Amino acid sequence: MFLISMLSPIPTLSEASNSHLLTSAKAGDRILAVTIRKAAEKLHHLMNLRQIIQFHALSFFHLSAPDLLLGMDKG
């Protein structure tokens, strides 16, 4: 119970990126000496890849695409 009160409030996906959430989960696993299953490791890796794809899509469509479509001088 004490550990849960130390960790709250737990950040949600809207407050922190997946990288931060996965890193804190891995740190908690190491502190508590917990071994996670292979399926959980694959899920962590999949979540990390999803964030990479989301970041690149955001970067292209919101930052680069207007310059490519409208021209560099239309800022």
Score class of each variant (00 low, 15 high):
11 P>N: 08
44 H>G: 14
29 D>K: 10
21 L>M: 10
34 V>W: 03
58 L>A: 13
3 L>T: 13
65 A>I: 10
25 A>T: 09
35 T>C: 04
66 P>N: 02
71 G>T: 00
9 P>T: 03
42 K>Q: 12
33 A>F: 01
33 A>I: 06
17 S>A: 02
31 I>K: 11
42 K>N: 13
50 R>P: 04
13 L>E: 08
26 K>I: 08
70 L>C: 09
74 K>M: 03
4 I>W: 08
13 L>A: 02
45 H>E: 15
36 I>W: 06
47 M>P: 00
28 G>V: 07
49 L>M: 03
10 I>G: 05
8 S>I: 10
27 A>H: 07
31 I>R: 11
74 K>H: 03
11 P>D: 14
18 N>A: 07
58 L>E: 14
61 F>P: 01
53 I>Y: 05
40 A>V: 13
38 K>F: 00
53 I>A: 12
41 E>G: 04
50 R>S: 13
60 F>K: 05
36 I>F: 11
53 I>R: 09
49 L>N: 06
11 P>Q: 14
44 H>F: 10
33 A>P: 00
6 M>R: 11
43 L>E: 05
32 L>K: 12
58 L>P: 05
54 Q>I: 00
40 A>D: 13
57 A>G: 01
44 H>Q: 15
13 L>S: 00
54 Q>Y: 01
74 K>L: 01
46 L>A: 15
10 I>D: 07
31 I>Y: 07
62 H>Y: 05
54 Q>G: 04
71 G>P: 07
22 L>I: 15
75 G>H: 03
32 L>A: 09
59 S>G: 05
13 L>W: 03
63 L>M: 12
8 S>D: 14
12 T>P: 07
27 A>G: 03
38 K>W: 00
3 L>Y: 09
61 F>A: 07
64 S>L: 15
66 P>A: 06
49 L>G: 01
1 M>N: 03
9 P>R: 11
44 H>L: 09
8 S>W: 06
21 L>D: 04
23 T>G: 08
8 S>Q: 13
37 R>E: 12
30 R>H: 10
43 L>P: 01
51 Q>V: 02
31 I>H: 10
19 S>C: 05
41 E>Q: 11
41 E>D: 08
29 D>Q: 13
62 H>L: 09
41 E>V: 11
13 L>H: 00
69 L>R: 02
25 A>I: 10
68 L>Y: 08
51 Q>W: 02
56 H>T: 02
62 H>K: 10
59 S>D: 12
4 I>V: 14
64 S>D: 03
2 F>E: 15
57 A>I: 11
73 D>L: 05
28 G>C: 11
44 H>P: 03
37 R>M: 06
49 L>V: 05
69 L>N: 02
25 A>Q: 08
63 L>K: 14
60 F>T: 10
44 H>I: 10
21 L>W: 01
42 K>H: 09
33 A>E: 12
